[in-house]
Design a protein around this nucleic acid. Structure first.
Length: 981
RNA sequence: GCCGAAGUGGCGGAACCGGCAGACGCGCUGGAUUCAAAAUCCAGUGUCAGCAAUGACGUGUGGGUUCGAGUCCCACCUUCGGCACCA
């Protein structure tokens, strides 16, 4: 009795070994194949090989791409489907700190586990392309790309046509092509080098960074959630430090605009656009004079007039001089409503503008702001705070004196770090003005009541009280005044981004070293001048280190590296010290999709011929948690490589699908009062409380709890058995006490909740095919879905039925063909079912509707299990349809059906419409749009025939009696509807 | 607060262009097989009324368009994801 459940382990091991031995999925990209119908590059977001092993979330996307690949091969496509490891990063290093195990050892071990697990699922990767981002032969080229970034400056006005034939403005160009101003050239080569360094896409910057003492590293803004580190939830401090940044903002426009042509979910595109946050407005200079503070905080009208007429001649300077405060605004139309200005506390002009009387208050406020973490700043932002500097500026449009404040609601890192405040028409300014009782002057009115300006009106409208501009609609006003300011040298059009430059250095060990040296002076101090490692000498390997304890300071780990790694003397005698920062984890994942196409190339990062024929990635599948960062960084690098002529496409990922998260099993949670955690119970009746009477709350430790709305008493959650609850109305209640409403929901899988499903366990119990099939059957790939072990049993049962449909279970020992499978012609009805299934499954796979494709196959099996004769001519195509989903059982059945080699390259079945036509069809009959009956008529029956049949039907006739048909709606082949009175 | 996605049986979900709501699976009920159980097979299963034929109601809520709305339009509610002083 060879039952499927008894055979599954043998079958899966057998076919995994077969695919390995025959290199079934190996693809040689250099080879051309005239018979192929094109290339298909399908990529999974490669995993970080954590110590916890594979999670059931991983195989979801991996199964989807595997189906697409297997389907593609059967349709004659040449398929590139690689897998590798995103292996640099914090966890391996944290483990090293704890145990002393070298991160390379931990990483290798974890990779081994992941690989074993992935192989046990039968994915059709070309494993010969495998690599990890930690391989020196890989990070050699990561460093090489960094050198490209270092060698590039962005020329925003450059108009050019790329290899894609499209014209665009703005290009990353070699630093050698950067025009050097004459006054810089005249200062000598060192000045030129510094000028170039100032314009590179990779540059150094001293800035307050997010220093996390617990992790011993500086974090990027994106790695901080609610003021705490994303990993571990540790507090973060602001500390000034020299950092490497990548000038991603230079590409802001192109990163936003070039999303349009991509086949990505609209939600991801809009998330990226929001993240980039492009805004258009104007920069305006407010005159403060040269000695504002010493002049008692005010500036003479005469000096202002002189400045203005000078500006009319010179125009608006590129960089503001110290006699002005430059602001950025998106609403230059509200210039007549300005009643104060605000500088960020860190703004360099604060020092100069602060009067003697205000100095103490300003200094103390600045100190507070500097030490505050972002969290504190957000917390305190619930009310606005700020201090008057004592200084004044002059409003360029009306010559008014405007008081200058500092406040931390203005950020130094956005725009110019200074704003003109218009409390009447900006919510934040209004809040601030209310706290400090500053004048609110309305200058915009709603279109429908244009007489008076309306304070608190934040939308577009019509200008009032705005001198010569009064009466203009907002948009016209903006355009006009921006032009006028430009003409008089007082302002200009400006664009800003919410996106900041990318903080690219980390102070950890387990990352790519920078291929850079700092020149040292005679005293051994850095001069600020840099040298690069020659390309031929890459990779710069990580030095061996004795211990991995963090330095305890923001100094990088590598500053403790051995001297022979740290120091060198250049041929010209200059002493050099290595850059000791390492690159962030994002670096390795920014370009791995390129290397997969040519992973062994020791001459180039990627062969241009292969790049041209195999890029871009046609389908990229991964979790939505990478919707912004990874995908934005990758696109940025790709565009730089494009500008520098190393790749021929502007975008790396043509099509993107985000798989939805898999949650744990649905849980029912009731709440009780008067019990402590884990203290139950003496058998006394529990004091159940309905969730309707509870409200969510967060305690001091940040843990979410439920409390009684009226009394504030904390309710203890109790997990309930399914049998203890029932549905009542819209909610679930206790069976015993139906007035007690309970929670019913699925939670994110987590160790602490204990609802994690281990794929190894599922494979062991049901087999890889069942796991794959279940994950695809759960629902749409993109949806968030709860796990259900019963559901896995369901698909395992289906595979058992497939097995019995084709295999003779009566036979004692041998896996033999079921005698019902015969070489006889299929009946018309059997052909109809088969071709209907082929049509539906094909369409569903093409549209990634895997759940419905599986439903169709289930219908096929339900149909054919009931038949005593199962013609081979319909059974074989079915096995092929099933094979991308459940490849092991399909290969086995294919063998039993008499084939000697893998079905991986068999032609995908095709259907013929002629088998799909039915002889009779059932037509629904409606009366006034309501279904009243059905009539069966020959296929292709015309309207009169169907109407006659409908009227002849007993129930319809009864309903029609005594009524008049006013109208008949007829949809051929679909339905007929009588409108009656 | 802003941006995005989604609300359909007891549960996961299906329904292509506005045309039979609930495919397929889970669960549940009854039956067959069995000494018994597992496994398997058969039948039923949106709610209410009815012995039944059948009827009424039914896709988050309220309105609208239409012969006909889960699907289109307007307003709102809830859940999830993202952003959050970006001037």
């Amino acid at each position: 009795m060879p039952r499927y459940d008894d055979e599954v382990k043998r079958i899966e091991a057998k076919w995994q070994a077969y695919w390995d031995q025959h290199q079934t999925f190996h693809v040689d990209l250099a080879q051309t194949d005239s018979a192929s119908t094109g290339k298909l590059y399908v990529l999974d977001m490669f995993p970080y090989p954590s110590g916890a092993g594979l999670h059931v979330g991983h195989p979801e996307g991996y199964t989807a791409t595997d189906i697409v690949c297997r389907f593609g091969r059967m349709r004659g496509k040449r398929v590139l489907h690689p897998m590798g490891w995103d292996a640099f990063g914090l966890p391996a290093e944290d483990y090293a700190i704890k145990t002393g195990t070298h991160p390379a050892v931990t990483t290798a071990k974890n990779i081994e586990t992941f690989k074993r697990q992935l192989k046990s699922l039968g994915f059709s990767y070309d494993w010969s392309r495998e690599f990890a981002t930690t391989d020196p032969e890989y990070y050699r080229w990561t460093q090489w790309i960094f050198l490209q970034l270092f060698d590039t400056w962005y020329d925003p006005g450059h108009v050019w046509t790329g290899p894609d034939g499209k014209s665009r403005t703005g290009k990353g160009r070699p630093i050698a092509e950067l025009p050097i101003p004459a006054d810089v050239t005249s200062q000598g080569t060192e000045a030129v080098r510094r000028y170039q360094d100032h314009h590179r896409l990779a540059y150094q910057h001293e800035a307050p960074v997010n220093w996390c003492p617990a992790l011993g590293t500086v974090l990027a803004n994106e790695e901080i959630v609610d003021g705490k580190s994303e990993r571990g939830g540790h507090p973060v401090e602001r500390v000034p430090l020299r950092q490497w940044l990548l000038r991603i903002t230079a590409y802001g426009d192109r990163l936003a605009a070039e999303l349009d042509d991509l086949n990505w979910p609209e939600s991801i595109k809009s998330m990226q656009k929001n993240w980039i946050g492009r805004s258009e407005g104007a920069e305006v200079d407010f005159f403060v004079g040269t000695s504002a503070a010493s002049a008692g905080g005010t500036t003479s009208p005469a000096a202002f007039e002189a400045w203005k007429s000078a500006r009319a001649k010179t125009g608006f300077p590129q960089d503001p001089a110290s006699d002005v405060i430059r602001v950025y605004t998106t609403r230059p139309d509200t210039l007549f409503g300005v009643t104060y200005m605000v500088l960020a506390p860190e703004h360099p002009a604060v020092e100069r503008l602060t009067t003697l009387e205000q100095r103490a208050a300003v200094d103390s406020y600045r100190q507070q702001a500097a030490t505050k973490s972002d969290l504190d700043r957000t917390d305190l932002a619930k009310g606005k705070s700020g201090v008057f500097t004592g200084g004044y500026a002059i409003n360029p449009v009306n010559g008014e004196q405007v008081p200058i404040w500092i406040a931390d609601y203005v950020l130094i890192s956005y725009g110019t770090g200074a704003i003109m405040a218009v409390p009447a028409h900006d919510e934040r300014d209004l809040e601030f003005a209310t706290v400090f009782q500053i004048e609110v002057r309305p200058v915009v009115a709603p279109k429908d009541q244009p007489q008076h300006g309306t304070p608190g009106f934040f939308e577009h409208g019509v200008a009032v009280n705005s001198g010569p501009y009064t009466g203009l609609p907002t948009l016209e006003f903006k355009a006009k005044i921006t032009g006028d300011l430009q003409a008089s040298g007082l302002g200009r059009k400006a664009v800003n981004y919410r996106l900041r430059d990318w903080l690219f250095s980390r102070q950890r060990y387990w990352g790519e070293p920078f291929p850079l040296w700092h020149e040292l002076d005679a005293a051994g101090q850095p001069t600020g001048l840099l040298r690069t490692d020659p390309e031929a000498s890459l990779p710069v390997r990580l030095p061996e280190m004795a211990n991995f304890k963090p330095t305890g300071t923001p100094d990088p780990m590598l500053s403790k590296a051995p001297d022979d790694w740290l120091y060198a003397t250049a041929p010209d005698g200059t002493r050099l010290k290595r850059e000791t920062n390492t690159m962030p984890q994002w670096a390795g994942s920014c370009w791995y999709y390129l290397r997969f196409a040519d992973p062994k190339n020791s001459q180039q990062f990627l062969d241009p011929a292969i790049e041209k024929s195999w890029l871009p990635v046609d389908l990229y599948v991964g979790g939505a948690e990478h919707a912004v960062l990874h995908l934005l960084y990758s696109r940025f690098w790709h565009k730089v490589l494009f500008d520098r002529g190393h790749v021929s496409t502007v975008e790396p990922f043509q099509r993107l699908i985000n798989q939805g998260m898999i949650l744990g099993e649905v849980e029912f949670t009731g709440y009780v009062l008067g019990e402590a955690q884990g203290a139950k119970t003496d058998g006394s009746p529990r004091r159940w409380i309905s969730v309707r009477d509870l409200t969510a709350s967060v305690d001091e430790e940040g843990t979410a709890t439920r409390i009684v709305e009226q009394t504030g008493e904390v309710a203890l959650p109790v997990t309930l058995d399914v049998d203890a609850v029932e549905k009542k109305g819209d909610s679930f209640v206790l069976k015993e006490q139906p007035q007690i409403v309970v929670d019913s929901r699925a939670y994110k899988m987590s160790k602490s909740r204990g609802n994690v499903i281990n794929p190894d366990v599922v494979v062991d119990q049901f087999g890889a095919d069942s796991l794959r099939l279940y994950e695809m059957f759960m629902g749409p790939l993109e949806a968030v879905k709860p796990w259900s072990m019963k559901g896995v049993e369901g698909v395992a049962r289906f595979l058992g039925r497939v097995w019995r449909m084709i295999i003779d279970e009566q036979h004692e020992t041998e896996v033999k063909l079921n005698p019902a499978v015969q070489d006889v012609p299929a009946t018309a009805e059997q052909l109809r079912v088969a071709h209907r299934t082929i049509k539906a499954v094909t369409r569903d796979v093409e549209s990634t509707g895997f759940n419905t494709a599986i439903s169709r196959m289930m219908e096929f099996v339900n149909e054919f299990l009931a038949q005593d004769v199962r013609p081979r001519a319909v059974i074989e195509p079915f096995v092929l349809l099933l094979s991308p989903f459940a490849p092991h059982i399909a290969e086995e059945l294919w063998g039993v059906l008499g084939h000697s080699k893998t079905l991986a390259y068999e032609s995908w079945p095709t259907y013929d419409e002629k088998y799909l036509v039915e002889t009779e069809v059932e037509i629904p009959v409606q009366l006034n749009g309501k279904l009243r009956g059905k009539v069966t008529v020959p296929a292709g029956a015309d309207q009169p025939a169907i109407e006659a049949a409908a009227k002849a039907d007993a129930t319809i006739a009864g309903q029609l009696a005594g009524k008049t048909i006013v109208k008949t709606v007829f949809v051929p082949g679909k339905m007929v509807n009588f409108v009656v009175k």
